[in-house]
Design a protein around this nucleic acid. Structure first.
Length: 280
DNA sequence: CTCAGTGTTCAGTG
DNA sequence: TCACTGAACACTGA
């Protein structure tokens, strides 16, 4: 379920395993959809025998830099994941990543495997093929990364800028939160979580938001992201009172959170869970 | 068998 | 050109 906290978590994993390391072996599983625009050989050549200088993230996009171009970009899409594999690395993960393929002992849905000279191995998997890997000269010149607004966690907009931006939009506030060009990293469940804690109806139009509501929303974004990133996106460590634990549970749409009914609607084209009793 | 799903991109509309 | 909406993408798992 990759949203900003999950991508930050895998970014940190890759940074700790790979920075300063030469990639002594690489396996690119042929997949012309995931490696869109690049051949298997091109992706292989962009990684093999190169020394990683940095692992970066903006919103849900991430990229590996080396001492020279090209840069290798990645996006996990809906179902992509990155994990460490190999000796003693099959530790528990709380995420829904692909289990091991029983036949060859590697992760199921493997797309890319990188082995560093320190022996650590990083696997990129994707069951649904919405994930992407691509090459470019730099983040600054990459068309997809260029379009992203400031990172919702690292480069948060000021309250004033955030308020001004949302108050001139006529889309539902949930759709605005999901707009990666305004601020990047918020996905479907975080948008719902943030709106729940701010007690704002996800269908509210941006132009109708008061300064006080915009401020509450801004604080709620910081609260949810700070906590989710700090627990390394481990869902089991989210507070009990988070909508996350209740949103899809049980008999769909009829669940309760703290005694109040959770309603399901489509807002901004996405399934949305919210609590009409308190989200006005 | 049907259907919903964590995200992005594009076509069409106003 | 921009803001917005809805569909498409490809596949798994319930």
């Amino acid at each position: 379920m990759p949203e900003l906290p999950e991508v930050e978590s895998v970014r940190r994993l890759m940074a700790s395993a790979l920075i300063g390391q030469r990639l002594i072996d690489v396996e690119v599983v042929p997949d012309e959809i995931v490696c869109s625009g690049h051949s298997t050989e091109e992706v292989d050549a962009a990684l093999r025998n190169r020394v990683v200088s940095g692992v970066h993230r903006r919103g849900k996009f991430f990229w590996l830099t080396f001492d020279s171009a090209p840069v290798v970009f990645g996006h996990l899409g809906m179902a992509g994941w990155i994990r460490e594999v190999g000796a003693d690395s099959l530790r528990l993960h709380s995420h829904g990543e692909a289990p091991l393929d029983e036949e060859n002992g590697r992760p199921r849905f493997l797309k890319l495997l990188m082995k560093a000279e320190n022996g650590r191995q990083i696997a990129f998997t994707d069951s649904r093929r919405f994930a992407r890997i691509w090459l470019g000269d730099s983040a600054e010149t990459n068309d997809r990364v260029k379009k992203l607004g400031p990172d919702a966690f690292n480069e948060a907009l000021s309250v004033a800028d955030f308020s001004k931006a949302i108050q001139k939009r006529k889309a539902p506030i949930k759709a605005i939160l999901l707009d990666q060009a305004l601020m990047s990293g918020i996905g479907n469940w975080i948008a719902d979580e943030v709106l729940y804690h701010a007690r704002i109806n996800p269908a509210r139009i941006g132009t109708s938001m008061s300064d006080a509501e915009a401020t509450r929303l801004h604080e709620s974004i910081a609260y949810v992201l700070d906590l989710a990133v700090n627990v390394e996106a481990d869902y089991t460590k989210f507070p009990e009172n988070w909508l996350f634990h209740h949103r899809w549970g049980g008999n769909k749409g009829a669940d309760l959170i703290e005694g109040r009914e959770i309603q399901r609607d489509t807002v901004g084209g996405r399934t949305t869970a919210w609590v009409p009793a308190i989200q006005l």
